[in-house]
Design a binder for these strands. Structure first.
Lengths: 131, 131
DNA sequence: TATTGATTTAGAATTAGTCTAATTATAGAA
DNA sequence: TTCTATAATTAGACTAATTCTAAATCAATA
């Protein structure tokens, strides 16, 4: 789907169930966790459909994805640009909305030579519970 | 191993082979790619040893790790703090050394409440070859 | 209603990474 | 040097995460 394609996403009942699971959770769920919760409303839903739905929703900008090292991908109900802090002790993932200076972004674009789509600052460290 | 532990890492010949593979590649190799190349100098090396060595070298600050969504972890010969640009079309990973303003880092620490260990700006977009 | 294309399903397959138990290598003590 | 303890390596089984396949179902529309 190209950037100029503005068709409204088709939400089947399976896709809606997956979407609702993500929207209703503050946490960043893995595909397995989404599957477990989606089954509560749609007991017959299959694992493959959850994966298909996650990909579809992501491609249509309805959910976000975060990948951490050493674990499954996690899905994010926030789709606007934002940042993450990751606790290396307990794995906690915290959303942050930081103001990234335009000059920093400009130098990233200049140095890489990339056409930018998005960007994110990630902070690794220890959360207040784990210190 | 704690931050105050300054013992010199023990480099067996397998660990050295793995280290050399990563040092001699500008690309960010996956564990599988490291295994293939390490076998060229050490034909008997096993997959498990490559994983063990990668973990050991990482814990001892001799290599870095980058995780992208939808793919295996990749290893990085650069161990000093730096940033990455990722091409969403071809998967290319480009190293960048950006000057992250202290004020930005401070607000990330304040917002998250984390004790920081490291941080990184990631830029997603399209590289010059893929535009 | 019949057709067509998209979606879902179950389960197999694949990929990435970890674990286990036996073997081998290494460093230090006797 | 030989013995002993510890650590590292190996092969292969295992687990977890994700993707693929082919058949069945569903939904829109001719």
């Amino acid at each position: 789907m190209s950037a100029t394609d503005v068709r409204k996403p088709i939400l089947t009942k399976q896709r809606r169930a997956v979407f609702d699971v993500i929207q209703s959770s503050v946490d960043h769920l893995s595909a397995g966790e989404v599957f477990d919760r989606a089954k509560e409303t749609l007991p017959g839903i299959s694992f493959a459909t959850v994966y298909n739905a996650l990909r579809y929703l992501k491609e249509n900008g309805m959910i976000g994805e975060v990948s951490l090292s050493g674990g499954p991908a996690r899905f994010d109900r926030i789709t606007t640009r934002h940042d993450h802090a990751i606790c290396e002790a307990c794995g906690k993932l915290v959303d942050m909305k930081l103001e990234i200076p335009g000059s920093l972004l400009k130098s990233a674009i200049d140095v890489s030579g990339f056409k930018p789509r998005s960007f994110e600052l990630t902070l690794w460290g220890t959360c207040s519970q784990c210190v």
